[in-house]
Amino acid sequence: MDDLTSEFDLVLQAFWLTIQLAALSGVVSVLLGTVLAAMRVGPVAPLRVAAATYVNVVRNTPLLIVFVFVFVAFPNLGLLVGTPFLLKGVLAVSFYTAPFVAEAIRAGINAVPLGQAEAARAIGLTFGQTMGSVILPQAFRAVVPPLASVLIAMTKNTSIAAVFGIVEATARMRYFTNNSPDDTIVFLVFAAGYIIIVELLSVGAWGLERRWRVAR
């Protein structure tokens, strides 16, 4: 406990790294996931197959193994050796999360009535324009709650980075538990930190959902 209070800046630094990791991964996952979802519902068969394969392979791979690939296997092959650790963490988390995002968005796309796409095509929009201007904006609305769940899981998943060279919250927690005779308080403090971050995410999602519902 004394360690925690006297070195509380270390706790804050660690959570700041967790937030960076989660925020960057969130952006990359949503972008990558959106592209994957569009590929899956798109008219080009090879892209549909490629996206479906990626989603199925990566979604069925444990996150830890994705991390091992990015942090150990690739560098052993000479790839990503000079890449900063935070960026590798973002890559690993995003590679893993994107298929879940893609599936959530695909569900959202399927929830948009078919007539919306037909109307868009009927006024001459291309597939890309139909997706970008008509389908995805509506899909995202339907997708906010499941997407929030995916991003919350992702935020907690960033803790795997603790054993891959990134001193984020969980890694720092291990440092304190290693030194402290009273682990329980350390656990509670760090759990509270994660809960706060996740609650902020939930509140943000709730706000978006409300705003968009009113706008309809």
């Binding site: 942090f71 150990v72 560098p75 050796v81 650790f85 603790a162 054993v163 891959f164 060279g165 990134i166």
Partner: peptide, 17 residues
Amino acid sequence: RGFDTYSECVDQVLNGT
């Protein structure tokens, strides 16, 4: 740079990370 095991850590030294 914390890792789960020493062998992963040695790999990082060997591959120059």
